[in-house]
Design a protein around this nucleic acid. Structure first.
Lengths: 130, 130
DNA sequence: GGTGCCTACTTTCTTTTGGAGAGTATAAGG
DNA sequence: CCTTATACTCTCCAAAAGAAAGTAGGCACC
């Protein structure tokens, strides 16, 4: 694991630029506020219905929730299960791939919690120097 | 370090909702495509000038680069050094806080590289069922 | 002394995206 | 017949992002 990281990050092996472009595109897709928040919500609660997600992810509109979930489903991050009943019931859960992304983002959540004070201090300094 | 992670992620300690809101806001700020790409570019190359960054971060407009760098500076992630010469020379480098965020995102880059194929396969499957 | 270059931005204009809120389908229950 | 419940979908408007041109100001060239 540490060895893998070393190989991936410390070496200057020439990387195929096509691969790099694809990785960049994927990062762009996945490094999105709502994707991250939905991922976290599903990590925490396991299986959730549409309205439960809407409640859990503060501030998201229905349109964005639908859009985010569709994109995540397409990327193989979430699994969508429709129960053909009335009123409709649709369940969302992370796939193993989604879980692995959640774990990858773990460090970022940790960072945010740990460094919140530092960022706020930096902002105050920046703002009063105007 | 592992113990810290355990405390942060596996326990169900009641978290102050105000803190959670702040963390969510910070995540929203920082989990941005361009921020991530600029961070990576600065991690890789150390000190860079404006135009070097513009070339390195494929597809970014000057406006977004300026905006992203200003926001990152405000958050204490990058340090901006102006050399009062003609033509202008401005250097950008990561602060220790910026480096720590870069390390936190390391896992995501790793994930993207490792799982690119899986995501592409998922997309093909999703699209042809479309 | 006019012309143009250099860099790091601004400014303006257009296109894309995001949010708010109403509408839709369906069946059970009163 | 009217309400309720759910998961969207649609429409309209505001906000954000992208493209391209403009700015400052000292320097070199002709």
């Amino acid at each position: 694991m540490l060895a893998t990281e070393k190989i991936a990050y410390d070496s200057n092996l020439p990387v195929d630029p096509r691969v790099e472009a694809l990785v960049t595109e994927l990062i762009g897709r996945v490094a999105d506020k709502w994707t991250l928040l939905v991922l976290e919500e599903l990590e925490d609660h396991g299986v959730l219905r549409f309205t439960e997600l809407a409640r859990g992810v503060a501030g998201i509109s229905q349109k964005m929730l639908t859009q985010t979930l569709r994109a995540m489903e397409r990327d193989g991050l979430v699994e969508r299960t429709v129960h053909p009943v009335v009123p409709p019931k649709v369940e969302y859960r992370l796939t193993p791939l989604g879980h692995s992304l959640g774990e990858a983002f773990c460090g970022v959540w940790h960072w945010a919690g740990e460094n919140l004070d530092r960022v706020e201090a930096a902002r105050r300094t920046f703002d009063e120097r105007g």
